[in-house]
């Protein structure tokens, strides 16, 4: 870990001021990802601005019937919150599929959105990596890429976003509220994370002196027909090879609304309006689910070791939709996949 200065922000404006004053500064809340990366010398901030005591811990109903979640709500508190459990169980399930109980107790909602890739070359400072050191090259392209992206990749980077929570938030159409020197703004979660393009060092659209203040969930909550299905190399405490957030609304056996997002396959949670549109108005059958999966995976490109993800993702999408349609969501504790 490098030597750095420590400041504690008194309020959001203070945090923004401190950020603006020191180009090498970073915010810290739960610290679960940042401290890890600092110990690897991947992140070397000149200053940490402690925002953990800012009053951004409320979960409140919005006027339109949605929920506004303070950026500092710990992941576990969010997952177990009665309003989330009752109304947005997809989100609760996705959160509980990630990390460990300890890490979920520490990690904040805002920090979860900021977590960086698990690409081994990003972590190993002895190897080239465009995300860590722009211009050095991508070691994964022709290296070990079993757990790398199949969608939205570029010649610069094939890293994946490791968050589970973000996948559910993408499916639910969440908004990210941001404050910065120029005032407040909000963006759709699906626009918050970037594709790598030629600037893989930038994971998100968050400006240098900006801070996430809240996540907003729209009223559409999919309380009944949903599933978060995470496929990984061991049954818990591992990053996704592929994960699926599936949520539908049914009228009879017909799908009136559908949401699908994939994790573990791209630089950001992967959604396709086309795939979701294809489900609307259709009967909830495996064939239709398969068609939607194909649309969602359109353009998927394998590298040497991750070709299996395409077939796996397709099957996982179908299965998650079957689970959603039958109102038997995947349990994160009982490992049998119904």
């Amino acid at each position: 870990m490098n030597n750095f200065q420590y400041s504690r922000a008194g309020d959001v404006a203070d945090a923004i001021r401190l950020l603006a004053a020191d180009p090498g500064a970073k915010l810290i809340a739960g610290g679960t990802n940042l401290i890890d990366l600092m110990k690897e010398n991947v992140e070397r901030p000149s200053r940490l601005i402690d925002i953990s005591r800012l009053p951004l811990r409320d979960i409140e109903e919005t006027a339109d019937g949605g929920l506004r979640i303070g950026a500092l709500v710990p992941n576990s508190d969010l997952a177990y919150h009665p309003l989330i459990n009752q109304r947005y169980p997809l989100l609760a399930s996705a959160i509980l599929a990630g990390a460990s109980a300890q890490l979920r107790n520490m990690a904040s909602v805002g920090g979860n959105l900021m977590q960086r890739t698990r690409c081994p070359y990003f972590y190993d400072t002895a190897t080239p990596c465009n995300k860590r050191r722009p211009g050095t090259g991508c070691s994964a392209l022709d290296g070990l890429n079993r757990n790398h992206a199949i969608l939205g990749t570029s010649k610069s980077c094939i890293a994946t976003n490791p968050s589970d929570m973000s996948v559910a938030l993408a499916a639910l159409g969440a908004l990210v509220h941001i404050a910065g020197p120029m005032g407040a703004r909000s963006v759709a979660l699906t626009d918050f994370h970037r594709l790598p393009d030629d600037k893989p060092n930038l994971d998100t659209i968050l400006g240098r002196s900006e801070i996430i203040t809240a996540i907003e969930l729209p009223p559409h909550s999919f309380p009944r027909n949903y599933s978060y299905l995470k496929i990984r190399d061991r049954l818990s405490y591992a990053f996704a090879l592929v994960s699926v957030a599936a949520a539908i609304e049914l009228e009879g056996n017909a799908i009136s609304e559908a949401r699908l997002a994939l994790g573990g396959v791209a630089h950001k949670p992967w959604r396709s309006m086309e795939a979701e549109a294809a489900l609307r108005g259709q009967a909830a059958t495996p064939d239709h689910f398969g068609h939607a999966a194909d649309l969602l995976l359109q353009g998927a490109t394998p590298r040497a070791h991750n070709g299996f993800k395409i077939a796996l993702a397709r099957r996982a999408v179908v299965r998650a939709l079957i689970q959603a349609a039958s109102a038997t969501p995947q349990s994160q504790a009982h490992k049998k996949i119904a």
Partner: peptide, 23 residues
């Protein structure tokens, strides 16, 4: 020392956390 094993787990304000990733 990286939040991967849980050996450092302690209770802070009664909640279990990884003390290795806590400043």
């Amino acid at each position: 020392d990286h939040g991967q094993c849980g050996a450092c787990t302690v209770l802070v304000e009664g909640r279990r956390v990884n003390s290795c990733l806590t400043l």
